[in-house]
Every structure is written in C-alpha cells, then in structure tokens.
C-alpha cells in the first residue's frame, strides 16, 4: 500500500514539475504569430482576378482566415495554392473546382480602341496606361491575366493571349524516366487524396 502511495506521489510530483516547466517555457518562448490573413495572402497569386467571388486576393484571404470561406476558390493558384492554404489552416484539402488555365495576358488591339478608360478603371493592378481619347496599352510585365478588363470594354478590343515563353525562363522538366514519373504520379495522388 505504501509502495503504491510512493509511486503515486513521485509520479504526481514529476508531473507537477514537468507541467511547471512547460508553463514557464510557454510564457518565455511565446512567439507572436503573424496574422493569418497576411500568411494566406502571401500564398495567393495576387492576380486580383475576383474569380473566387471576392474583389481581390486580400479580401479572400481575410474571409478564409476568418473561417467564413473554403480554401479551394482560388482558380489561378490551382491545386498547389489550395494545398498550401489547407496546410497552413490545418483543414482538410478540397478539390479545386476549376482547372487553372495557362497563364495569359490581356492585349489591346490599339486601332480599335476608342480611349474610353473603362478598362483602366477596371484593372486591379494598374497595368493599363492611357488617357481619355488616347489608345490604351497594357504593360505586359504587370498584367496578371485576370480578364477583368475584357468585360467593361465597349468595343471588345481586348484579347487574352497566351503568355509568350521566354528562353531565359525555360527550365528543365523532370527527367523522362519511369522512376521520376512514378514519383510524380504518387505526388499527384497524394495531393488529390489527403
């Protein structure tokens, strides 16, 4: 009987000490976490396209952080972004409803442009330059391909063109061996099912 008491007492004391250490450690090494909104926002592709139903990337990030919105609504970000957000939020990944299209750019057919500035107002990243009654031009380096300028144009002179592939931006694909393919498939599966 006393053996049992000793055991209980010593274990209890040990637990108490360990608990105290943990409590002190938590206070001492407390890390002020970055606000979730910024973390999610950093993962989003910043196209500001509104395809998620929110007026921009930050509002969507705010909604996701507040738990009001699912993690799978970012279309340009695709599966990768969804997985990263899900991982960050610690929630179950969802399937992405829409396939992300190849990156595209808006292009103004300048001889048809009437200079109405409507597209300039619509552009979320100020990537269109021009003045009233002047041709507008899209700065290709800044265009996120969000397509928000296409709709407002009264004369339909904005095309979405495929982003040209640059030699400097070319990168090696995975080697074409069975093993790397297998690894790739497994990764895809993994991403799809977790």
């Amino acid at each position: 009987m006393t053996g049992l008491l000793y055991a209980l007492a010593s274990l209890g004391a040990f637990a108490l000490v360990a608990g105290l250490i943990l409590a002190i450690a938590q206070k001492a090494f407390h890390i002020e976490g970055d606000p979730m909104v910024d973390k999610i926002d950093a993962l989003l592709p910043q196209t500001q396209c509104g395809q998620c139903g929110y007026p921009g990337c930050k509002p969507y990030a705010t909604a996701v952080a507040a738990g009001e919105e699912e993690v799978n609504h970012c279309v340009p970000g695709g599966e990768r972004t969804m997985l990263q957000i899900a991982d960050l939020m610690g929630v179950e990944p969802k399937t992405v409803e829409q396939e992300a299209a190849a990156p595209r750019l808006a292009f103004v057919r300048e001889d048809e442009c009437i200079g109405c500035t409507l597209c300039i107002k619509a552009c979320p990243v100020d990537a269109i330059i021009g003045a009233p009654k002047q041709y507008h031009t899209i700065i290709a380096d800044h265009c996120t391909g969000c397509e928000l300028c296409v709709e407002p144009c009264p004369v339909d002179c904005i095309d979405m063109v495929t982003k040209p592939e640059l030699l400097e931006h070319w990168s090696w694909p995975l080697p074409d061996t069975k093993r790397s393919q297998l690894a790739h498939e497994r990764r895809e599966q993994h991403a799809g099912h977790v």
């Binding site: 926002d41 989003l44 910043q46 990337c57 990243v125 996120t144 931006h169 990168s171 090696w172």
Partner: peptide, 22 residues
Amino acid sequence: KGQIALGRREQAFAEASRTRSE
C-alpha cells in the same frame, strides 16, 4: 533549380502585383 527559380519569379510577380493593387 528551374522550379525554384520559377517559384521565385512567381513570388516576386505576386509581390509586385500586391503592391500595385494596394
């Protein structure tokens, strides 16, 4: 190396877009 460079480019582009949008 290519994928990392691509990621960095995308990151930089997103960063620039965010600044412009803000």
